[in-house]
Design a protein around this nucleic acid. Sequence first.
DNA 1: TACCATGCGTGAAACGAAACACCACGGAAC
DNA 2: GTTCCGTGGTGTTTCGTTTCACGCATGGTA
Lengths: 361, 361
Amino acid sequence: MTAKGTSARNTPLKSDQPVTLKDVAALAGVHPATASRALNAETRLLVRRETADRVMAAADSLGYRPNTVARSLRTRRSHTVGVLIPDLTNPLFPPIVRGIEDRLAAEGYVALIGNTDSDLDRERLVFERMRARHVDGFVCATAHLRSPVLADAAEAGMPVVLVNRHAEGYGMHCVSVDNERGIAMAVEHLAGLGHRRIAHIAGPQDVSTGLSRYQGFVAAMAAHGLTVDPALVTYARAYSLEEGDRCGRELTAAGSGCTAIAAANDMLAVGCYAALEAAGLSCPRDISVVGFNDMPFIDRLRPPLTSVSFPHYQVGAEAGRLILEQIAASAEDRPSPGEPGKVLYLAPELKVRGSTAPPAE
Amino acid sequence: MTAKGTSARNTPLKSDQPVTLKDVAALAGVHPATASRALNAETRLLVRRETADRVMAAADSLGYRPNTVARSLRTRRSHTVGVLIPDLTNPLFPPIVRGIEDRLAAEGYVALIGNTDSDLDRERLVFERMRARHVDGFVCATAHLRSPVLADAAEAGMPVVLVNRHAEGYGMHCVSVDNERGIAMAVEHLAGLGHRRIAHIAGPQDVSTGLSRYQGFVAAMAAHGLTVDPALVTYARAYSLEEGDRCGRELTAAGSGCTAIAAANDMLAVGCYAALEAAGLSCPRDISVVGFNDMPFIDRLRPPLTSVSFPHYQVGAEAGRLILEQIAASAEDRPSPGEPGKVLYLAPELKVRGSTAPPAE
DNA sequence: TACCATGCGTGAAACGAAACACCACGGAAC
DNA sequence: GTTCCGTGGTGTTTCGTTTCACGCATGGTA
């Protein structure tokens, strides 16, 4: 009866029906409940060593794989987390997602991924879909400052960690970069080069990155004794190349006289390149451009973009760590909507490259 | 089909316990089984119209959401598919994954994502992990020509669709680009410019893209009456910048005399840029370089890379379509390991950019 | 009137694993 | 000798849903 296999992976001898816990128990000559505990590391000490070994051997020889679905139904744990991102094809996100996924994988978790395109309806849809699949928590990179989805999640007491973008008032932990500090470094760099009329392509003001980089820009300008000309601030409706182009055209139109542009994000900055080219301007000779995020490959562009950098992968990994921590924590240990929510800021760093130079004249 | 609630989301009046089918049935004054059928569009016609409406209204008012986990346990369908990719941070994959995900989302499916780093052990791990979660099928972009994981999947009769990389002998459908044709276009372009000594940075030969691009290269050279100098073919161990750099250095070393390089992939080509720079060579003046894949942003590099293009997003979307098709198909309709497996090749297109020019002399 | 479809619903049994309550037994304490 | 307790296990229930196998009317038909 002990159809002991070799160390090699032996296919179950049974029919094509998957082998269940009951089968293992039967082979080991023990009750299913006992088998369950023997196989579960947590509860293994409740069963005699020798019995446990017998069960494990049986499981091994049958090629038993626990049915996670059944287990989830009972334990209400799926060992799965949902990851919400605006758009995977934005080069900022892949490293973050990898960081998350690697961290999760290390603990036996897997990631369910969903793109929202910054569309609230689509966000709701994927959120509900993931929730229905009983994810243990969410990592959310799509946070708007006011987010109905996050409000729901908070009310339901689900573990959520925000990444990159912050949203206050829901008591959620967040891991991101110090945006004010980052944009200040950009302004400082430009001012140091001698630029006075510095423009800003602001990101969407309904997400934290857009807002705080804008505020940081204003503050930093003031700190350097520079005035913010309202004509030199444009607002992008999305972090996209197209919007960068549009805003760039606006800034280069009709004698605005700006010599440098601090964009709220690399996509906007790169989009801006096209606008400069269209206007017959050269970067950095005529106009300097600074981005934010230091996306992969941005250092190989033409010209290489000066950008505010932060460790994307680590941000993701930290977010993964935090969500696992919260899942493990009992409900009362989690932050509640009332509290402020811990914020983990990774330090920004300015990467000076070929897109910035002293003003022409 | 589903009875959309009002625009306002009504919170369940019950306690914080999730509302279950039994609750709905109780409110509607009907048996749980009946409620199940009333809510399930497929079986709704088995119940009187009026009763069905009552049940749906009850479900709506309670804010009922079916427990997908319980459903999966019973139906053995998770409405989840596993997506295996080598590395999300390789810019080739995000658009493909988005294509897959969008297509899946349209049918109510979600994607479980896993990076393997081209490591067979890690691949096995995430594969098993996803399998344990009862994914309905796999989309696999990591296929090696011989793959134990795929062999297992085939034997178990699980729906699998290969994307980008092909693997024969497992009878799986595949959606990709015509690699031979693509590399031939690259060679033709270079030959047309007047290049005679054309080098090839080959990809890993244990994956289909590496092998067939290499074979295509050899064939195309012959077709143009050019000889393949073995010294002008180097083999990358991975599709990485580092390997591109290494191979590039090899090719530029000591008087190989090559004037053009056809790389098996953009990452290798871009890595090669660094090697050229290190050797004091200029692209395209001294050496022309052609890539493959036409990754996002590659057209903005310095210099913009000439590359063989194919529609990444569509490839992903097609793969999504195919996997859904197979999941829907009954087991006997699926391709079996014996048969060849349908292959869907999307047409390549050469994007000529600034990295190629006639030879110097 | 007898009889069979048929429409609507009800019970109850899965699905696979974990949690909970219990039980036999041997040894220790009183 | 009785009580008490810890060890190592057994049964049973539960998780929420689907689905199979019926029952019970009703209506059309021979």
